[in-house]
Nucleic acid binder design. Structure first.
Lengths: 206, 206
DNA sequence: TGTGCTTGTTGGCACACTGTCAATAAGAAT
DNA sequence: ATTCTTATTGACAGTGTGCCAACAAGCACA
């Protein structure tokens, strides 16, 4: 007796449907660990048949890879960092910018960098590793002309490692609330400067 | 026709059987990620019925928690670190000792600290977090009387975060082989000294 | 040596989850 | 109104897991 009975099924453009499922997956995987989110629940939450997930993404696992990829791609490549200044000033500015965007997307970012709980998975590890590479490049770029090209090459793996410090420090700040933003800022800036100066000094003497 | 037909079933002491299954689980979970190791395979590998795993550990998940717990408990509480010397010397000695034991148990350690691929799981996270706490305590203790009790309190979360740097740096060294032991040694020592001095300096002025 | 008992051990049952795929119908084109 | 494309569905088969009653290995006792 309804005037406009909604059709049982709603046809959407493949891209739209794919995006809808992906958004729903990002939300659910952001709240609970991978294993505790069933494809059935995911489909129900998205108001879709479970088979559609396999149709669009191949499988639950593949969908999860997309989620992680979307999560680690969060930070936009802003360029608000000062283009000149001493190494310390540059590092300071970069960390400050990063902490600001971390203050917003912090929760999501933490889930992502933890691998969502599957860091040992080769494919997941690859995604996270690539994200680390990109982040390291961004950071080295932000430090600007203070370092040469070959110095950047040598620094790259160290900055990758430094990324681990960023993550754990961020976790202490956002999740455990055991550090203030000022403490985090100081710690990350100081260590970054030391790492860069130490490595550059070593490369100069070598 | 066998002279001494082995009995189909072999009765073991509960502790022995439990240890046997746990050892087997440590080996398998150390090689492949959690999801790809089935309880069936685990039981077959251990030469036991699958039901026995549930009987002794409750479930595959609970067994996994035991494995992680066993893995992160690897580092023995040695006391070879120099009891006196400057902060830099102490840090240097500690890092050197740590890198040496890491050279042996490195592979296992990396699997463990990555959460084996389930870091987002609350229970797994708790185990890793406790391990981080213990490691931070050990490190602060190794730095010795150079820092006071309340300084150690304030430093604790920072050292926890520093643990993240240790992990990522160790991964670059052991897994990716993008850094040499000397580079790792220098990086970790320098950053540790800076973190401690910076925090202590701040607490002195405060 | 034979018998009974304790309990470590087994195999099968029921349930949940996942990937696959042919059948279905929503929506545009005619 | 009808046809056609294809997004969408529901069911099926396979696999993994927790649970539990039945079984027997090894010890104690007569």
């Amino acid at each position: 007796m309804s005037l406009e009975a909604e059709p049982q099924r709603q046809r959407l453009e493949p891209d739209a449907r794919r995006r809808q499922i992906l958004d729903c997956a990002i939300r659910l995987f952001g709240e609970r660990p991978y294993a505790s989110v069933s494809a059935t629940e995911l489909a129900k939450e998205a108001g879709v048949a479970r088979g559609l997930i396999n149709h669009y993404f191949g499988g639950k696992r593949d969908l999860y890879l997309e989620v992680i990829k979307a999560m680690v791609t969060v930070p936009p490549p802003d360029r608000v960092t000062v283009p000149d200044g001493t190494l310390t000033e540059r590092a300071d500015a970069f960390i400050d910018w990063f902490l600001t965007i971390l203050e917003r997307h912090g929760k999501t970012w933490l889930v992502a960098v933890a691998g969502g709980g599957m860091a040992s998975d080769p494919d997941v590890g690859k995604i996270l590793s690539d994200a680390d590479d990109l982040a390291a490049d961004r950071l080295l770029e932000a430090l600007g002309p203070a370092i040469t090209e070959e110095e950047a090459m040598a620094l790259h793996p160290m900055i990758r490692a430094y990324g681990g410090l960023i993550k754990s420090t961020g976790r202490e700040w956002i999740e455990r609330r055991s550090l203030t933003r000022e403490q985090v800022h100081t710690l990350l800036t100081d260590t970054l400067v030391v790492i860069v100066e130490s490595a550059i000094g070593a490369s100069h003497t070598a």
